[in-house]
Deep mutational scan, measured.
Amino acid sequence: KELVLALYDYQEKSPREVTMKKGDILTLLNSTNKDWWKVEVNGRQGAVPAAYVKKL
């Protein structure tokens, strides 16, 4: 499985998103959308802005 690093804090704004903190390591589930990537963090799945994460 592919991992990404959170470059910034992000507070979810809808139920389809997830909150992450700078430095979090997230499991990347889907990166086909260039703006929003689906990730899993702390057992929750949701979208985060692609510009806020970097593939490891």
Results as ranks from 00 to 15, higher is better:
Lys1Tyr: 14
Lys1Asn: 11
Glu2His: 12
Glu2Gly: 11
Leu3Ser: 07
Val4Gln: 01
Val4Glu: 02
Val4Asn: 01
Val4Tyr: 09
Val4Pro: 00
Leu5Asn: 01
Leu5Gln: 11
Leu5Lys: 07
Leu5Glu: 11
Leu5Ala: 06
Leu7Asn: 02
Tyr10Arg: 02
Gln11Val: 14
Gln11Thr: 14
Gln11Pro: 06
Gln11Arg: 11
Gln11Trp: 13
Glu12Asn: 08
Glu12Asp: 05
Lys13Glu: 08
Lys13Ile: 07
Lys13Met: 12
Ser14Ile: 04
Pro15Glu: 12
Pro15Ile: 11
Pro15Asn: 11
Arg16Phe: 14
Arg16Gln: 14
Arg16Lys: 13
Glu17Thr: 09
Glu17Lys: 05
Glu17Ile: 05
Thr19Ala: 07
Met20Phe: 13
Lys21Arg: 13
Gly23Leu: 03
Gly23Pro: 00
Ile25Asn: 02
Ile25Leu: 09
Leu26Asp: 00
Thr27Asp: 04
Thr27Ile: 15
Thr27His: 10
Leu28Ile: 05
Leu28Thr: 00
Leu28Gln: 01
Leu29Ser: 04
Leu29Met: 08
Asn30Cys: 14
Asn30Arg: 07
Ser31Thr: 11
Ser31Gln: 12
Ser31Ala: 12
Ser31Ile: 09
Thr32Val: 10
Asn33Ala: 09
Lys34His: 12
Asp35Gln: 12
Asp35Ala: 11
Trp36Ile: 04
Trp36Met: 07
Trp36Thr: 04
Trp36Phe: 08
Trp37Thr: 03
Lys38Gly: 08
Lys38Asp: 15
Val39Leu: 03
Val39Phe: 01
Glu40Ala: 09
Glu40Met: 10
Glu40Asp: 08
Glu40Ser: 09
Asn42Thr: 05
Gly43Pro: 01
Gln45Lys: 10
Gln45Val: 15
Gln45Pro: 07
Gln45Tyr: 10
Gly46Asp: 00
Gly46Lys: 05
Gly46Leu: 11
Ala47Pro: 02
Val48Arg: 01
Val48Phe: 02
Pro49Trp: 04
Pro49Asp: 02
Ala50Cys: 08
Ala50Arg: 10
Ala50Gly: 04
Ala51Leu: 11
Ala51Met: 11
Tyr52Gln: 04
Tyr52Ile: 07
Tyr52Lys: 07
Val53Asn: 00
Val53Asp: 02
Val53Ala: 02
Val53Ser: 00
Lys54His: 10
Lys55His: 09
Leu56Arg: 02
